[in-house]
Design a protein around this nucleic acid. Structure first.
Lengths: 188, 188
DNA sequence: TGAATTATTGACCAAATGGTCATAAACTAG
DNA sequence: CTAGTTTATGACCATTTGGTCAATAATTCA
């Protein structure tokens, strides 16, 4: 019994996420968010709270979409080796294309925000765990010992995040390929 | 034949580096730099150019001191396994102490700046290479094949950077320990 | 001593920042 | 149609931002 929203909230949050993803939190201004969303400042503040709330919402959206897409791969068809290879291939491919400079929003948030922002840290922490668990489960048909699977999963997450740092730092794609290959070598 | 500097340039650049290290580039304001250095704004601008120049100088200083300290370990005494273990132990230890929140300035710079800042990217790139080469050389007594050593070194750098992302993201220290252990497992 | 040169100081600046709010518009239940 | 409720609009705000500059203070060379 009131005026309805004139915008698609999901679309707006996608556009907000893309800005934070590409530029980071501090380098993103409200002007950027206004421009990307197509809304006016007042509406943006009305729908979400403030810039920080928007960032956390964007992070959650990233988890629900992009991270989930990775987890879907890990839960899907194929050998453990094949699935894990695909994670790294995504990094290599997007590095080679070189169009989108954002890298991985989860990694970006971890390094830029988590140390000083408890809310972001909590979000990053649970997403990391989600990713690790999915890798563990992909590994489980091959590794009976659960602790062993957990340790290897932790390790693969590390290598994956590291490849994200390398990719943005301009390291040659071969280094990421080497990282992937050594990871796969440890997957039975 | 003119008025001499009244401050120790090396000390000032150390303090500038510490601010950027802890807060990142965008979140650091000139006020912060003024406060940390003890100089006044005019002097800071007079001695170094602008904020960006200060950041690059800080990054170079980080390379010359902190990264070099890591490389010194890799060039020093002990088995390859021991030396590489020590790199990771530094991460684990500083995570456990939890006092300084900066993590690794090289990683921070790579994710925050390298994608959009060519100067930072170049600096990050060469520092990554330096680190990789040092690891290769630490490995060389044990791995005859040079390509093989290079690939393993690339991989270790990746895992190391990844552990830095995990550490800031609040992942349990055990994950970093697992990462280290699996790395060492690959070192002959 | 004095001319020349560089460093220090802090007031100053335009622009950008994140955020607010009164008003107008759009809708629904009665 | 109307009362009530939510949304949209954009002008507005204090504060902070990175950066400049004219005046003053040290210093050295001649």
């Amino acid at each position: 019994m009131a005026r309805p929203r004139q915008f698609d909230e999901a679309r707006v949050i996608e556009s907000l996420m893309n800005v934070f993803w590409e530029k980071g939190y501090e380098a993103t201004s409200m002007r950027d968010l206004v421009a990307a969303s197509g809304l006016l400042k007042g509406s943006l503040y009305g729908a979400f709270g403030d810039k920080h709330t928007m960032y956390v919402a964007a992070l959650k959206h990233y988890d629900r979409t992009r991270i989930q897409a990775g987890i879907d791969i890990l839960n899907g068809e194929g050998s453990a080796r094949q699935k894990i290879a695909r994670l790294f291939d995504n990094v290599i491919e997007s590095t080679k294309r070189g169009l989108f400079a954002g890298g991985c929003l989860l990694c970006n948030a971890s390094l830029e925000m988590a140390a000083t922002d408890p809310e972001v840290k909590a979000e990053v922490k649970t997403t990391i765990r989600r990713l690790k668990v999915a890798i563990m489960e992909a590994l489980s048909p091959r590794i009976a010992n659960e602790d062993q699977a957990a340790a290897l999963a932790a390790f693969i997450v590390s290598a994956y995040f590291g490849s994200r740092v390398l990719a943005k730092g301009g390291a040659p794609a071969a280094m990421i390929g080497d990282t992937r290959d050594h990871c796969l070598q440890l997957v039975p």
